[in-house]
Amino acid sequence: MKKFLTALAIAVVACGTTTAHAQATDPKTELAKKVVALQQGPELDRLVGQLAGVSTQELIAKWGPKMEASVPKAKQPKVSEDLNAELKKYTDDASQLIGKQVSKVSTESLVPAYAERFTLEELQQLAAFFESPAVKKYQATAPELGNVFVQKLVEASRPDVLARIKQFDDAAVKIIGTSPAPGAGKPPAKK
C-alpha cells in the first residue's frame, strides 16, 4: 500500500508539473509575449520620457510661482539653477521608475489582451510583421522622423500662432485695461 501511495503521489506531482508546464508554455500566450516585446522600441522609451516630463512640468508649475513670490530677485538665478538641477535628477529618476513598470504592466495587461483578441495565426502574422527589416528600421527611425515632423510643424505654424497671440493680447488689453508687463510671455534672457 505504501508503494502505491508513493507511486500515486509521484504521478500526481508529475501530472501537476506537466499541467503547469503546459500552461506556462501555451503557444498563444508565448506568441502574445513575443509580439508585445517586438513592438516595444524607441517609441516606448519616448513615451516613458513624456510621462516623466508631464510630472516634471507639474512640479515646475507648482514651484515656479512659489520661487518668484518667495525668493528675492537677486537670488532667483541661483535658486533657479539649483531647482533645475533637482528637476533633472527627478526627471531621470521618474523615467527609471516608470521604465521599471513597463515589463510588469505589459505582462499583466497587454499579453492577455493580445492572447484574447488574436488567433494563433494572427499572432504569428503580427510577430512576422514586427520582425521584418522594414518595421525594425521604422522603429529605429521613428523618433528622429517624429522630431523632424514636430520641428517643421512648429516652424510652419509659428507665424499664425504669433498672430493669434497678438489678437489675444489685444483682446486682453481691452478686457483688463492695461498692457501685459514687459517681457511677460517671453522666456527669460540668457545670462
Rank of each mutant, 00 (worst) to 15 (best):
L8G: 03
I10L: 15
A11F: 10
A11E: 02
V13E: 07
V13P: 03
C15Y: 08
G16T: 06
T17H: 06
T18Y: 11
A20V: 11
A22W: 12
Q23N: 10
D26T: 12
D26Y: 07
L31T: 03
K33E: 07
K33S: 08
K34A: 12
K34G: 00
V35Y: 00
V36S: 12
A37G: 05
A37W: 02
L38G: 06
Q40K: 10
G41H: 04
D45E: 10
R46Q: 15
G49N: 11
Q50K: 02
G53S: 11
V54Y: 08
V54W: 01
V54I: 15
S55Q: 13
S55D: 10
T56K: 15
I60S: 02
A61E: 12
A61Y: 11
A61T: 09
K62Q: 15
G64D: 07
G64C: 02
K66A: 14
K66C: 02
P72I: 02
Q76N: 04
P77C: 03
P77M: 03
K78W: 00
V79Q: 04
V79D: 01
S80W: 03
S80D: 04
D82A: 12
D82G: 03
L83R: 06
N84M: 09
E86L: 14
E86M: 08
L87D: 01
K88E: 11
K89N: 11
K89T: 15
T91W: 01
D93R: 05
A94Y: 00
Q96F: 01
I98T: 00
K100S: 11
K100D: 12
Q101C: 05
S106V: 01
S106A: 14
S106T: 14
T107L: 05
E108A: 14
S109F: 14
S109P: 00
V111E: 02
A113V: 01
Y114M: 05
A115H: 05
A115Q: 05
R117I: 02
R117L: 13
L123V: 06
Q124W: 04
Q125V: 07
Q125M: 12
L126K: 10
A128H: 05
A128I: 06
F129P: 02
F129Q: 07
F129S: 05
E131H: 05
S132E: 11
S132K: 10
A134F: 09
A134R: 12
A134C: 07
Y138G: 09
Y138V: 09
T141C: 07
